[in-house]
């Protein structure tokens, strides 16, 4: 069952008097529970594609369906709600909230959704932190963590709301190869045990080797699968 469907997706950016095409008619379907890599060189359109699937941007033309909802027809509030409840994000530079500690960073999306009681929330947060191996760092702030630990916090934060899809934009780019591999292993394990759909972008061949499906894009178009 498709969780993401893209049909004829075009994304253009105005650049002065010019219009730059970041995506040129992408058609793609991602099934629920997949572990998919969007691969391609820098500037190929990987991040733009993830932004459209992640509902932080909208297509210039074409249709993006996320969990059956056409993102081009949704209001800003609906898109925010979709991001909060259906999507999790892992960023290349971690993007943690510096003034919050590990527990608070992971708890943050749950506080925004307001769906759990404080007790349930704490239990869920602690179990995920334990899962990513950061129990000892519970009250440390991002500045006190290594790059790998920060990315683990980001993974826990992305998964805490039990999202249907986790989007990871070059999650290992700022990590050494050993830490990067352990992060990918963690994501694979979570994909297997939680059934969460993972879509991540990379241009690292070592990372691509872990993927079950690789979609290669170049110059804003799908080159091969």
């Amino acid at each position: 069952m498709a969780i993401v469907q893209l049909q004829g997706v075009v994304k253009e950016y105005p650049l002065g008097k010019l219009v730059v095409s970041a995506l040129r008619g992408i058609d793609m379907t991602i099934e629920r529970g997949e572990f998919t890599v969007i691969a391609g060189p820098s500037g190929s359109g990987k991040t733009t594609l993830l932004n459209l699937i992640g509902c932080v941007d909208v297509a210039t033309r074409g249709t993006v369906l996320v969990d059956g909802q056409d993102t081009g027809r949704l209001s800003d509030a609906d898109l925010t709600r979709l991001r909060l409840h259906k999507l999790g994000f892992i960023f290349q530079s971690f993007n943690l909230i510096n003034v919050l500690d590990v527990h608070q960073n992971v708890e943050f999306p749950l506080l925004l959704s307001g769906t759990l009681t404080p007790g349930e929330r704490d239990k869920r947060v602690r179990s995920l932190i334990d899962r990513v191996g950061l129990t000892e760092q519970l009250i440390q702030r991002p500045a006190e963590l290594s790059g790998g630990q920060r990315q683990r916090v980001a993974i826990a934060r992305a998964l805490v709301t039990n999202p249907a899809i986790v989007l990871a934009d070059e999650p290992t780019a700022n990590l050494d190869s050993g830490t990067g591999a352990s992060i990918i292993e963690l994501m694979k394990e979570l994909n297997r045990t939680e059934g969460t759909t993972f879509i991540f972008s990379t241009h690292d061949h070592a990372v691509m080797s872990h993927a079950r499906r690789i979609v290669k894009i170049r110059d804003g178009a799908v080159e091969s699968e």
Binding site: G54, T80, R83, L84, F91, L112, R157
Partner: peptide, 16 residues
């Protein structure tokens, strides 16, 4: 700005 963008991406509304 990046932090605000991240919070918006995670699911924080404009009003929040």
């Amino acid at each position: 700005t990046r932090e605000i963008g991240t919070m918006r991406a995670i699911g924080m509304t404009r009003w929040q």
